[in-house]
């Protein structure tokens, strides 16, 4: 019963959205270069479905690799800042400054610096854009751990490492997953920026770019839909992982 509602409600919402979109384009009589309608997209997908699969996979794996590096690196930086006040004071302004630089300006620079290394560039940008929220959330999670939690284990003579694994890490997981949901979207944006900007790129971004050069507007819209689909999939993978590893933080309803 609950399962049915969980699937039926979003599906109905999706169909309603597509119908409204179709109606809007139809009523206004917009040509497809102004606004493609869902019915224009079907031919675009059927014509290029092989390209969509290849390019979609390209985008997906580079986003995920960039994100994985961001998780490892961000968690490490977060741990350093979470455990040492001095390091927090030292690193925080650096991180904030780094994060404040709009990544759209970094993309062309990186594309030039490592010209030709397209996979590397893309993964690098995906990583750079997404590690910040992870680092911040882990550091805040660790530094705000109530001393009472630590004391339970410390009073038994447990080592710092044991305290980290048994208390600090699990206690930080809800914050970590909150940040990961932001990071996954950011990494995705990073990947696409690089794919669109760099010449001879690959992935869905490059497909979008080729649609632009060939004035194939339905293709461009189709890429947007494909991107949205991938983004949703990635996001819900994180949600599923969160349920498994930090489900305890969810308060029972009522």
């Amino acid at each position: 019963m609950i399962k049915l509602r969980q699937i039926a409600v979003p599906t109905i919402a999706m169909i309603t959205f597509l119908a409204l979109w179709e109606a809007l384009v139809w009523i206004n009589g917009w040509p497809n270069y102004k606004m493609a309608s869902p019915s224009d997209l079907v031919p675009a997908f059927t014509r290029y479905w092989e390209l969509f699969l290849i390019m979609g996979w390209q985008t997906l794996w580079r986003t995920v690799v960039g994100l994985l590096i961001a998780i490892v690196f961000g968690t490490m930086v977060g741990m350093i800042m979470g455990f040492s006040r001095t390091m927090r004071d030292a690193l925080y302004p650096l991180l904030v400054g780094f994060n404040a630089v709009p990544k759209a300006t970094v993309v062309p620079i990186v594309a030039l610096m490592f010209v030709g290394a397209h996979d590397f560039n893309t993964v690098l940008i995906a990583f750079m854009i997404s590690f910040f929220p992870i680092a911040v959330s882990v550091s805040i999670g660790l530094s705000t751990l109530e001393p009472e939690y630590r004391d339970i284990l410390r009073s038994l003579g447990a080592s710092q490492t044991t305290i980290f694994w048994k208390i600090a890490l699990p206690k930080t997981l809800p914050e970590f997953f909150g940040a990961l949901k932001v990071a996954v979207t950011l990494a995705f944006i990073g990947t696409n920026l690089m794919e669109i900007v760099s010449p001879h790129g690959r992935g869905l971004g490059a497909l979008f770019d080729s649609g632009k050069t060939n004035s194939d507007y339905p293709l461009m819209f189709a890429v947007l839909i494909a991107l949205a689909f991938l983004g949703i999939v990635l996001y819900y993978v994180v949600v599923a992982l969160e349920k498994i590893f930090a489900g305890w933080a969810e308060r029972p309803a009522g």
Binding site: Y149, L156, G157
Partner: peptide, 19 residues
């Protein structure tokens, strides 16, 4: 000088590991 494992302690604030 440091905590020892032969001590059992119930704290005033009885925090439990929620997970």
């Amino acid at each position: 000088k440091s905590p020892r494992s032969t001590v059992g302690m119930a704290f005033q604030n009885p925090v439990m590991l929620e997970w």
